[in-house]
Amino acid sequence: MDNRQESTIKSLVTNLNEKVGNLFKYHGEIAKQLFLTDGFNIEGRVDISAERKYLGEILKYIPDSLKIELVDEHCTTTNFHEADFSTIQHANIFEEDNLIMTIIVYDVEDEMWMFRWNHNIRLPEKHIYFHSIKWDVDYIKPEIVLMYELLEPTNYHKIPNYRSVLDALSYYQFMTLRTIVGDDRINQAVRFEKRVI
């Protein structure tokens, strides 16, 4: 990542934290970093997660210089008038051709968060995240981050530090993850990570 792109990402994160920080939670690598070390280092693409009803408000604070792609199960579009916001799975934010942020959309019904890949898997929404007092940000719990990463249909193997996150999970967190994704996916990710290291 070059200095300009890093500066753009940091500026975007600062702006979103200041303007709509209460409407989203950090996801992906940053969530894992916050869980493991209470660190908040922006060193590449940033993933955040937001309830569907807040997506439009968050997107208002993405600078016009960046390209926004709305993605659902069937298509990707940059035209907000064509998009059906009720089916958007995530929004990708690009600087030129470089993906710098993904906003993962989740649904809530009767105050229950629903897992995107299976709406029968539900948790009270207030139980899907932790809060970092040091950084004053919310972040998705690691077992939920891993649910998304391990069940994502494309290239979940590219994401590092599964072993350290798995080792830091409580028994309840690990059993929740294991019940949802299964032993095979967990073991496959750990084996792949060992080969890369």
Rank of each mutant, 00 (worst) to 15 (best):
197 I>D: 05
120 N>S: 13
153 P>A: 14
38 D>Y: 14
170 S>D: 10
154 T>F: 13
29 E>G: 07
158 K>D: 13
106 Y>V: 10
65 S>P: 01
59 L>D: 09
7 S>P: 09
68 I>H: 04
19 K>M: 10
37 T>Q: 00
88 I>G: 02
147 M>W: 15
127 H>L: 15
193 E>F: 08
194 K>W: 13
158 K>W: 14
145 V>P: 02
91 A>S: 06
3 N>Q: 08
96 E>I: 11
1 M>V: 15
169 L>E: 09
163 R>C: 02
144 I>N: 08
67 K>P: 00
82 E>N: 14
188 Q>V: 05
67 K>V: 04
180 I>T: 09
117 W>T: 07
58 I>Y: 11
173 Q>R: 07
110 D>Q: 04
57 E>Y: 11
78 T>C: 06
38 D>A: 14
129 Y>A: 12
8 T>L: 09
136 D>T: 08
3 N>I: 07
112 M>L: 12
177 L>Y: 10
134 K>T: 03
182 G>L: 05
12 L>E: 03
115 F>C: 10
112 M>I: 04
114 M>V: 04
19 K>G: 03
1 M>S: 12
77 T>E: 13
139 Y>F: 15
26 Y>A: 01
41 N>I: 08
129 Y>D: 12
16 L>T: 09
128 I>H: 00
41 N>G: 00
86 S>P: 01
164 S>F: 09
190 V>T: 13
138 D>C: 05
96 E>M: 13
54 Y>D: 07
70 L>W: 12
105 V>Y: 06
179 T>C: 06
92 N>L: 05
101 M>P: 02
183 D>P: 01
127 H>E: 15
138 D>N: 14
34 L>F: 06
93 I>W: 07
76 T>P: 01
127 H>A: 15
